[in-house]
Amino acid sequence: MSDYSLAELLITAAAQAWTNDGEVMATGIGVLPRLGASLAKATTNPALMLTDGECLYTDPPTPPGRVADRAQAEGWAPYDRTFSTLWGGRRHAMVGPVQIDRFGQANINLIGPKAAPKVAMLGVRGFPGNSIHHPNSFFFPAHNSRAFVAGEVDYVCMAGYNPARYLDGRKPAGLDLRIIVTNLAVLDFQGPFHAIRVRSLHPGVGFDEVQDNTGFGLVRPDHIPTTAAPTAEQLALIAALDPQGARKTAFKGDPPGDRRQA
């Protein structure tokens, strides 16, 4: 019987994104990426700087659903400064787009034609600037071919490894896509010419299921490890970092991390 949830597995997998980043701003958009960044700070990379999602850096990180404890503030992150920080490259964000394609191009703006979209969403927000200035990772709670699309995303908000869109034929210097954490697997960009590769499969998930739910071909290594289960120490830290239990509502029914025990 596994004693960890899918949410906790994904938090632990997400935390690995920030292990080797050094002293940078860590931004996780959404409950699980945010807890992943918090877990990284509590374990492998204590130098990380995290905000409350508004404009204060706090240490320890502000739990999801909570207002910052002002006594824990350690810095100021108004939007003006956040733009300066990201243009300087000292940030690694994990974001949750609606669509991603084989180049790592990502979309949060709209579905359908640009002039009169079928579904209008947010706009491009800060995605274009983020994508070419600092490392980025991704989080998808529902890995399917509507999210992992064939062809290109409906609106390229984040630049990816698509030479046809480079100016001067050169990859933007700061373009650095790292990992994709989904409910099925962890992917990365370490295939040939940055092709998306399966890095690890979650317990009980096979390669074919991941490929069948992806609209483009995935690079399949000869040996694919199983995504590491959270340790007892990591589970205790996650519980402390999320006292309100926001992670428990990330997936309906809060399923176990090893689906064979669902």
């Binding site: 703006n109 002039a115 009169a116 979209p117 079928k118 947010l122 491009v124 927000r125 995605f127 600037g129």
Partner: peptide, 25 residues
């Protein structure tokens, strides 16, 4: 997250000039 009146207007073809947050600045 989704502003419903904006969503409706855009889906109806509202002309836009869109920018990254930092480009707007």
């Amino acid at each position: 997250p989704i502003e419903p009146h904006f969503k409706a207007a855009r889906q109806a073809g509202l002309p836009v000039f869109e920018l990254d947050e930092g480009m707007f600045h």
